[in-house]
């Protein structure tokens, strides 16, 4: 589904990603872990199509197509969804209007009639229940004044509405209380099927107890320095990153 080859990315004149290789197939769950500043969010936003970065080398293929040639909105409509680490507040733009526009753009793209206001509200209600999203929040401006946890839940709610093929969760678990974590994981698991894939970026093993990964990768200093099964997450939780850094250092030499 997603195939990243030797991806190098420069942000603000600094190389942040220095040759990433990653293959994600339908039905798989990949976890990406790694110390702060190692480039995880940069990788996620490169997939989503943020244009503030310079992609100097490599390729990203998505369902056989060159992703790098597409606008962010096109990527979204083709099924890529990024749960932002820091969701953006958009004062004055109502949640309902925002998501109705987004859902109808997706429908248009898929050759479906746009939903009427009434049908959309019904659809929204269903999805709210599915991911246990507080119904009051949809009456407000996008993320405006939402608490940290509410913003994260809002990301999952939007994901439920858009039913992506490839979801990238960038630290969706941080800032969530234990109940919310279960709700979010539950939401992700409910939406998961054999045709879609998930990339989970996290610092904590805990989320991976609920969303079971098939692969765990460690991103360090712009490179994936280790890939393994889910047991790697436990090992990292126990030992931290020093041994990984040392190993990576040894490989350099």
């Amino acid at each position: 589904m997603l195939s990243i080859k030797d991806l190098k990315v420069i942000v603000a004149e600094k190389e942040i990603l220095s040759g990433i290789n990653l293959d994600v197939k339908a039905g798989e769950v990949h976890a990406i872990m790694g110390p702060n500043g190692s480039g995880k969010s940069t990788l996620a936003t490169a997939i989503a199509g943020r244009d503030v970065m310079d992609i100097t080398h490599g390729s990203i293929k998505y369902m056989g197509e060159n992703l790098l040639e597409m606008d962010p909105e096109e990527r979204a409509k083709k099924g890529i969804f990024l749960c932002f680490q820091y969701p953006v507040e958009i004062p004055g733009v109502s949640m309902v209007n925002f998501m109705k526009t987004a859902v109808n753009e997706h429908r248009l793209f898929n050759g479906l009639e746009p939903l009427s206001a009434g049908d959309f509200l019904k659809y929204m209600r269903e999805k709210k229940e599915l991911v246990e999203f507080d119904s009051q929040l949809t009456n407000r401006s996008v993320n405006e004044g939402f608490s940290g946890g509410e913003k994260k839940k809002n990301e999952i709610f939007q994901m439920a509405l858009l039913e992506p093929k490839l979801a990238i969760l960038d630290e969706t678990d941080s800032g969530l209380d234990i109940d919310a974590l279960k709700i979010v994981a539950n939401g992700v698991n409910t939406l998961k099927n054999k045709d879609n894939a998930t990339i989970v970026i996290t610092h904590y093993q805990r989320l991976l107890d609920y969303i079971i990964p098939d692969f765990v990768h460690v991103l360090y200093d712009g490179r994936i320095v280790k890939s393994s099964g889910r047991e790697l997450a436990l090992e990292l939780e126990e030992k931290g990153y020093d041994w990984i850094k040392e190993e990576a250092g040894r490989q350099e030499k």
Binding site: E73, F81, V88, G92, F98, S141, Q158
Partner: peptide, 28 residues
């Protein structure tokens, strides 16, 4: 706000439409 525009684009809203939504909110 470029971050807001990208956020909306990443939900499938064309950039032009995203701009309109924000301008409209501003004027409102």
């Amino acid at each position: 706000d470029e971050n807001a525009l990208f956020y909306m684009q990443s939900r499938g809203i064309p950039r032009q439409e995203a701009r309109l939504l924000m301008l409209y909110a501003f004027a409102h």
